[in-house]
Amino acid sequence: MTKVDFSDITVSDWLASHPETAVIVAANASMAEVAQLLLDNNSRDAYILNDNKEVIGHLGFGKMTNYLLSEHRPIHTHRQLFSRIIDPTAEEVMDPHFAYARIEESLCEVIHRQLERDIDTLIVLAEDNSLLGSIKLRELVAESLK
C-alpha cells in the first residue's frame, strides 16, 4: 500500500518537483546509435523526434536489442530476416502508437498507463506534441515509499 495519494498530484506538479527529461533520438538514427544513447543515459526508453521537434514514436530497449543482436539468434521470421539485412532506422522500428501523458492529468491515471505498457520513462507532451518532460517509474516507486 502506498502512503502517497497520487490522485491529488497532477503531472504538472510532478514535473515541477521532478524535472526529468527523456532519451531523444533522430528518426534516421541507427540501432547502434539508439543503443549507445540508452546506455549512456541508463534508460530503457527512447523517443523519436521528427524534423518539427514533435515526438513521433517510442523505442524500448528490448525491441532495439532484438534488432541490434539479431544475427546471434538461430531462428528468424521473414520479417526479422528483412530487418536484419536492411539495417533499419529508429523510425522504421519505433512504435508510433505510444503512451504519453498530458500536463493536466492526475498521476494515478498516468501510472496505470505506464504499468500497462511496461514503460520506465513516460514522456509528457504539450498540445503540439513537443516534449515537456518525463515521469520515471523509479521515482514514482521511491515517492510511494516515503
Partner: peptide, 19 residues
Amino acid sequence: YTIGGSITIEQLRRLGKTI
C-alpha cells in the same frame, strides 16, 4: 499474412539490385 507483412515498400527498395 505474415509473409505479406514481412516487408514494406521502402525496405523492398533498399534490398538492393543483387538480392
